Simulated scan of single mutants.
Amino acid sequence: MKKVTVYLSEDTYEVLNNLSSRRKESISLIARKILEKGLTEESAKDGMDAVTEAVRKAMRDVLRPTEDRLAKLMAKAAVAAATAMYMNVQTIADLGKHNAVEIYNEARVKAVAYLKERDDNE
């Protein structure tokens, strides 16, 4: 064993002294037990932090290709939707309807309402 000298506040020393009296153990023994327990817990936390970080990194590496693919698909879907939207407005106008923009705005309101609806599966 190695000897270590530690200075404690009066309050901490009193708590340690009272604990020693109740347990009928030496102050040194109690201090060693508390210190060993604290160090063990800190080491476990450090180990858990390392494991948690490794798992997170592995998950990021595994999910990144899927996330990238989904982002590309969403971008393509947005372009396709915008193209269809403008083609529909142009088609309505070409058919001789003078209120194509009004029809578009009404359809957009209905689309937003549709998107806000809950599915029965949720």
Rank of each mutant, 00 (worst) to 15 (best):
A100E: 06
S26I: 08
K110N: 15
E102K: 11
M59S: 09
V79E: 00
D94A: 12
D11L: 04
I27Y: 09
M87D: 12
Q90S: 10
E117R: 15
Y13I: 05
T12M: 07
N18K: 10
M87Q: 11
E102M: 11
V109G: 08
Q90A: 13
R32C: 07
Y13Q: 14
S28L: 09
H98Q: 10
Y86Q: 13
M85K: 13
V101N: 10
K37A: 11
A81E: 09
L95E: 12
L29G: 04
T40P: 00
A31P: 04
V89Q: 05
Q90H: 10
G96M: 05
T91M: 12
A75I: 00
D68N: 06
V51W: 00
A54L: 01
D68T: 02
V6A: 11
R22G: 11
L35T: 15
R23S: 07
K72F: 02
A75D: 01
E106P: 01
S28I: 08
I30M: 06
Y13S: 12
A77K: 03
M85G: 05
V4C: 09
V79P: 00
Y86V: 14
L35M: 13
D94E: 13
V15M: 04
V89G: 06
A84I: 03
T40S: 03
V79Y: 00
A82N: 06
I34L: 15
R60W: 08
G47A: 01
Y104P: 04
L63Q: 09
A54W: 00
A100I: 04
G96Q: 11
K76W: 02
V55H: 01
L19S: 15
A75F: 00
L35E: 15
R32M: 07
E10W: 05
N121K: 12
G96H: 06
E122N: 12
M87A: 10
A58Y: 01
S26D: 07
D49H: 01
I27N: 07
A81S: 12
N18F: 02
V6S: 11
S21G: 11
Y7T: 13
L70E: 01
D68W: 00
M59I: 14
A71K: 13
I27C: 07
K97D: 07
N105L: 12
R60H: 10
K37C: 08
R56Q: 10
R64G: 04
L95I: 05
G96W: 03
K97M: 10
A54H: 01
L35K: 15
T83M: 04
A113F: 08
K37D: 15
K97I: 01
A54D: 02
R23G: 03
N17L: 14
I103W: 12
L39G: 06
A80V: 03
E106Q: 15
N105M: 07
K45Q: 04
D46Q: 10
L115S: 09
T91N: 13
V4T: 14
K37W: 06
I30W: 09
I30T: 06
G96L: 07
T91I: 15
M1S: 13
R32F: 10
S26A: 09
I92K: 03
V51P: 00
V55A: 08
